[in-house]
Write a protein that binds this DNA or RNA. Structure first.
Lengths: 213, 213
DNA sequence: TAGATTGTTAATCGATTAACAATC
DNA sequence: TAGATTGTTAATCGATTAACAATC
């Protein structure tokens, strides 16, 4: 029986992968148990915050000892949906698309990019990291047949909305967007923007402040 | 005279690029003025939130009319440090590194990747998007001579800390990290993580919840 | 036992949202 | 003028942090 997933903040969700990476590293080193205090120290977080984050995954610890690392890893992966592989389609075989196709670690995070699509006839038919590039027109039919839930958008901004509409029409439920464009999606579809420019904005604003001093 | 940069939240900093993209799009369409209400509608934000965000950039609007789009663009760019180009070094000429080197839009955001470095001798000497790949050993000397402030890390996790130490030792003030590794940096250096796995975590957790229904 | 750590409740802090007067 | 929008202050909401009893 699966426990009711409670409301969890975006902030917590973004910290969980950090804990996961650390735990896997420590397990490689033979560590068996770890306390919230230790995890908190590693990231300069508040120990109570770490404890609450872990609590949302349903993990249970032991006083004086902490949490079993192996259990934590399983709990976090379960909670993030990284325990079962999700098949995904990627659209846009440009630089970003290629980088994503070549990113081996996605498998570890339950993401399996099974095919790439492009509207450019010159790219269609080529293979990138062992996946054939297919014509965009084939996406709807294939997505339905293969029960694809995740669509990755790696096209230029001006084509992004069109691609998303195609994906949504094909029954795709979650969009991971790498295009710097605001996208419209219908109710019930999940949109997650992986916008590099937001991260860059934080960096350059901070840098400007430091340099101004 | 430059106004004292007040404390600004990370959330605000991340919304500003969204406004900027929208404003540039609207200006292309000939729009001259825009109200917070309109911007808010576009992103499903609260109008007051948009107003406060714009306020932090120092922009001033006019009752009944709104803000001049052209002025807003300038103010936001100034505030984010996107008005002056920052030269940057990139380390790691793998897939992610290549994608970043090929990302034309960075110039618009004041980021100018002037050189790429790699420790792999087979990559050294090749050219990627018109930048020569240099041996990593040359970074310290060049960074000092060229007054480079920004270092982009696009190497595998296990090499990331070493690269960062090298960069910091070479006087680089801000690190943009694409490696899935927790990095240690000394006081005064800025670290911004562009972690794809965090974004993926939010996506898959939400998807899992939806699919479970 | 002693004391570190969990689990949990309460206090604080900061960001978001609401309310409203001033203004064009 | 009338009314939409700015600018600003106050209220709300949620996340972070503090406090502390229970536990191993």
């Amino acid at each position: 029986m699966i426990s009711q997933p409670r409301v969890v903040s975006r902030s917590t969700l973004k910290r969980l992968p950090l804990y996961l990476h650390l735990l896997e590293k420590l397990m490689d080193q033979g560590v068996e148990n770890i306390s919230c205090t230790q995890i908190a120290q590693e990231f300069d977080f508040d120990p109570t915050q770490v404890r609450k984050d872990l609590e949302t995954t349903g993990a249970v610890g032991t006083a004086r000892i902490g949490f079993r690392a192996a259990t934590l890893v399983v709990k976090i992966k379960e909670f993030l949906g990284w325990d079962n592989a999700h098949d995904a389609f990627l659209v846009g075989a440009g630089n970003m698309g290629k980088a994503l196709l070549g990113y081996k670690d996605f498998e570890k995070y339950g993401l399996n990019i099974v095919a790439a699509f492009d509207k450019d006839a010159r790219k269609v038919g080529t293979r990138i990291f062992n996946r054939e590039v297919l014509p965009l027109a084939k996406l709807p039919n294939l997505a339905g047949r293969m029960h694809i839930n995740i669509g990755i958008v790696a096209v230029p901004a001006e084509y992004a909305q069109g691609v998303v509409d195609l994906m949504v029409g094909a029954g795709i439920r979650a969009i991971w967007n790498f295009a710097p464009a605001p996208l419209r999606i219908p109710e019930g579809v999940i949109l997650e923007n992986a916008r590099l420019t937001q991260s860059l904005a934080v960096l350059t604003n901070n840098l400007t402040k430091v340099l101004r001093k």
